[in-house]
């Protein structure tokens, strides 16, 4: 972790929470870890490409990939990815059949890559 006396020293491109350094710390604790990353957006969407959500095997999380609209669904997929190791690309938008459940109220669309952090072979 960054030196606690210098908040902001760990942040990346203006992200408030230090997702990557926390991912490393969680791995060091022996936790299963997945990263969800916004890779593309269409229309109005709250978080730009590169925004990240960190999830552990129990669904504990840090960061965000939206304004809170799709985090629940992404966390469920991330926990599954920690279990099976298979990366997945998720798409969310108002045209999605699950729109009522996990769509974006803003009317945008996002594509999110979810992948497990792999231990060295």
């Amino acid at each position: 972790m960054a030196d606690p006396a210098t908040p902001g020293s760990g942040e990346l491109s203006g992200d408030v929470e230090d997702v990557l350094a926390t991912a490393r710390a969680w791995k060091r604790e022996g936790r299963g870890v997945a990263l969800a990353t916004v890779v593309s957006t269409w229309g109005s969407s709250p978080r730009p490409p590169g925004s990240q959500l960190l999830v552990d095997g129990e669904g504990k999380f840090l960061g965000s990939v939206s304004g809170g609209c799709i985090e629940g669904a992404v966390i469920r997929e991330a926990v599954e990815a920690i279990g099976d190791g298979r990366p997945r690309v998720l798409e969310f938008g108002v045209s999605d059949e699950q729109a009522w459940e996990v769509g974006l109220a803003c009317g945008g669309k996002v594509r999110v890559l979810v992948e497990r952090v792999e231990d060295p072979a």
Partner: peptide, 23 residues
């Protein structure tokens, strides 16, 4: 541009994520 995004190469999609030094 400090912007991340998807580019196509050789028929596959690649995500290019900018990691610029801290502000």
């Amino acid at each position: 541009s400090d912007r991340s995004g998807v580019v196509e190469h050789d028929g596959r999609d690649w995500f290019v994520q900018a990691h610029n030094p801290p502000l």
